[in-house]
Design a protein around this nucleic acid. Structure first.
Lengths: 158, 158
DNA sequence: TATGAAAGGCCGTGAAC
DNA sequence: GTTCACGGCCTTTCATA
């Protein structure tokens, strides 16, 4: 479903990715359109689903969440039901930032945020290890975030 | 630097995470404040750095980017200079969404977006394998995204 | 089917309390 | 934290290519 966007649409996308709260008039001027035309394009991008929404970016460390952990999770079964049951539960875990089903051994890569090591121990024991069908958990701790974007630059410039 | 936020501040954060383009008046009503007081709090959260910015969420698959790859990268040296050189280059790579320095063997976990397998082959050859100091590359392909948030729910409710 | 221009209502902003 | 008032933005309508 690769929508056919022209360079103006992509320019609009780059601007709202940079600043979602930009005013319609400022956006219109940046992309070289009248406010009316610009707003119409923006609305179209929202309706098409290219723009899924607008979110404030929060500094988790400012809220006391100092730890980023990547957890590789292997299930003991790989049946549809087992995957579904696990995914239903992991989606409910409030400490999870992202979760991907990975190819290969059908395991999951789960990104977790925690206040500190003690907090992560609690999350590990009370949530992660109790997820349905979990066979193995391997935690990798991030020491530093080097790059963090919502979407790749290529996707917006290509 | 864990800021001391009250329940109103957290309510504001939850709302702007859900919809960054919410109007000041609508936000004020949702949190039970007058528009002026609400805007003052929001501005304070921005100045404190709790809110880093506002970004549109883009559906990469709508732009033709169908692949999500997690790449484990090990360097041949772990000196300060080697890490810095690598990080400078990886930050320039337009296909990278995120990159973390991981504890343990001082390797990196890099999240990459690509159009398709051919595109990823190009990224792998032309960008990733040519990064300074790279010893080993291990690619893991995501089959499905199960959870995707900008920040954990706990950080906003805690 | 796309844009551009103008008018009116609503919102965002600041002063005073 | 609230009220009030003013300036400006957002939206709609309509005309155009």
């Amino acid at each position: 479903m690769a929508s056919d966007l022209d360079s103006t649409d992509r320019k609009i996308l780059r601007e709202v990715v940079r600043d979602a709260r930009i005013s319609q008039m400022a956006l219109a001027e940046k992309v070289g359109l009248s406010p009316t035309a610009c707003t119409r394009r923006l609305t179209a991008l929202e309706k098409k689903g290219v723009i899924k929404g607008y979110a404030a970016e929060i500094d988790a460390s400012e809220l006391g969440y100092m730890m980023t952990v990547h957890v590789h999770i292997t299930l003991d079964k790989q049946s549809e039901d087992a995957l579904s049951a696990f995914e239903r539960e992991i989606a409910k875990c409030p400490d999870v930032v992202s979760c991907y089903l990975m190819s290969g051994n059908d395991d999951y890569l789960v990104h977790v945020q925690a206040r500190d090591m003690e907090d992560y121990e609690r999350i590990h024991k009370q949530h992660l290890s109790r997820m349905p069908g979990v066979a193995r958990l391997h935690s990798s701790f991030a020491m530093r975030s080097v790059v963090k974007r919502g979407v790749s630059v290529s996707a917006l410039t290509g």
